[in-house]
Design a protein around this nucleic acid. Structure first.
Lengths: 331, 331
DNA sequence: TTGTAGGCGTTATCAG
DNA sequence: CTGATAACGCCTACAA
């Protein structure tokens, strides 16, 4: 069943049918109704590929994220997809993992699917040496690239980030002015956000005359055990009474560490998380965490994307959204 | 840059270029190399839409799930996407929410995108009155429909489910034979899995002469507070020393309830979860939960899909995977 | 081994 | 207001 069949049944040309389908051009009410009825009866749907071919777009955007089973990323994907769909875009998902090569492959794959744009979700798409981000710039030569929670400068690249620096600074300062003497930062792997957070903590510590060096950063492997191990190692290296974590999962794991070591939280060890995820609501004590506004960021990203694809000229290349500290009982 | 440009640059016809691209037919090594080189130089990629048009497929499958920010679903989506990609399929994601109408819309939308198949992830796509599932059967007239964690009988519908009944029976029995006198089941909303789990618990209770009626089912609203409220209400209605939960999030919330009511777990209240999610690893005490093999189920679903689309005749319409009890310290 | 030509289903541009 | 017709870019018989 194609447009020719409909046209034949309605005794009109395919052009008229096309006009009715797309609401473009003038069609007499009589023929319009007739065509609509016939379309209904045969429940005909225009062929998406043919449409894509003709118009050069299927209104699809590629969403790349490292891992949808990450709490933060999965929520981001949820909101992105919802907002995109509201704006008439489909979402082609690709979970790339954290490996550099895989990420590049995935991006290339997306491009070959002729998506209208890609969204890189999460701070893992950005390497610290800027030249390593050229693969993103190269992609941006073909289609607009949007980044959520990561920033790279370049033509046709649009970024929405959270002000990790400031909120981390504030959180560290809050901790330092309420009793913390030494802060350890627990991270999983180096990412754009991580670097911003560390910078915030470093500056807050500097201001308060507290040492914060590379020693004060714990690299945790996957799993609760990995976190515990990393903290144990760190404790042999430096003294700390506070652990600021890259996300709530690390913080929840840090609580386990405290428990295992017999340290009471927050009196002997203070712990903070990040992301304001469901985890922060079910631990005991409740986690002090940071609400980095996933939903708002997702929505903003889609807004920018929609405007950009509509050839609006007023689109900001970098939008920064500020985050809030959420006080729990772990600090 | 299209196939004509490449052909011209290589002094061959488009047919030859096409053959090289698809590795079909015989092409002399010399011309093949030349074409390959030119393709490289111009980094040309075949137009996906044109290809789709000609072949009637873009090798894309639609993944429908209620909400990717659900722990279980997000992990399922992750594994599904990965396995699909390995088999050369792209994933078009659609988070439908839990509303019936929205789910139907989303399914229709997917069909209109000419996906090769759809996967309905999670047990929320199935209504208890079977006729309400006709929308799935209707979709299956156009393309194969795969369900993960839900089952509906019908032509062209393939289901992979977890044996929720048996494992729930076993878990309930284990609890009843180790001290539990009365079980409460905490659920969020009625779904396929829920019904299977309840059946298992009901039968185990019956076997052990323990009452388990509608009274013993608590419907929890969203959020920790919602769970606590539901359990409080239930406690006014019936006596229970054990709460079996539909998933780990409910179980973690139930722990909060116990804490708030001053009930120690497991001595005064025993709590079990479901899904073996990261939550079960970070609560205190660790949750007793059920490993329902998300990864294996996802992989199996994709396997069935691939075989089915390859027109293999030996594909089971319903695959059941068994689950394991994971003992924690909450029971 | 290579080339020609028709078909896939739309949209859009012209005439009428 | 409506119709004919040319793109859109690729695949694949069928010919050579």
């Amino acid at each position: 069943m194609n447009i020719y069949d409909i046209a034949k049944a309605a005794n009109v040309s395919i052009a008229t049918v096309s006009r009715v389908i797309n609401g473009s051009g003038k069609v007499s009410p009589a023929t319009r109704d007739k065509i609509l009825r016939i379309i209904q009866e045969n429940d005909y749907t225009p062929n998406a590929f043919a449409r894509g071919l003709g118009m050069g777009s299927m209104r699809t955007v590629g969403i790349l994220c490292a891992n949808t089973s990450d709490l933060y990323l999965s929520e981001a994907v949820f909101h992105l997809e919802n907002n995109l769909r509201k704006s008439g875009f489909n979402s082609l998902l690709c979970c790339t993992g954290y490996d550099r090569g895989e990420k590049e492959n995935a991006l290339r794959l997306m491009l070959s699917k002729s998506v209208d744009a890609v969204i890189l979700v999460g701070s893992n798409y950005i390497e610290s040496e800027d030249s390593a981000n050229d693969y993103i710039r190269r992609a941006a030569q073909q289609i607009p690239v949007f980044m959520m929670n990561g920033a790279v400068k370049g033509e046709n690249i649009y970024c929405v980030t959270c002000d990790d620096y400031t909120v981390s600074y504030e959180l560290a300062e809050m901790l330092l002015t309420t009793g913390s003497k030494s802060i350890l930062f627990a991270q999983r792997n180096n990412s754009y956000s991580t670097r911003r957070m560390i910078a915030g903590i470093r500056d807050a510590c500097a201001k308060h005359g507290v040492t914060f060096s590379g020693e004060h950063i714990a690299n945790c492997e996957v799993g609760v055990a990995g976190v515990i191990r990393a903290l144990q190692e760190a404790s042999r290296r430096v003294k700390f009474d506070t652990v600021m974590c890259f996300n709530d999962l690390l913080a929840a794991s840090a609580l386990k560490y405290a428990q295992q070591e017999g340290l009471s939280v927050p009196s002997q060890l203070r712990i903070s998380g990040y992301d304001y995820s469901v985890l922060s609501l079910i631990t005991t004590p409740l986690l002090t965490t940071v609400d980095n506004k996933v939903e708002l960021m997702s929505q903003t990203t889609v807004n920018v994307l929609v405007h950009c694809l509509a050839k609006d000229l007023l689109v900001s290349q970098h939008t920064v959204i500020s985050a809030n500290i959420v006080k729990g009982h772990s600090t």
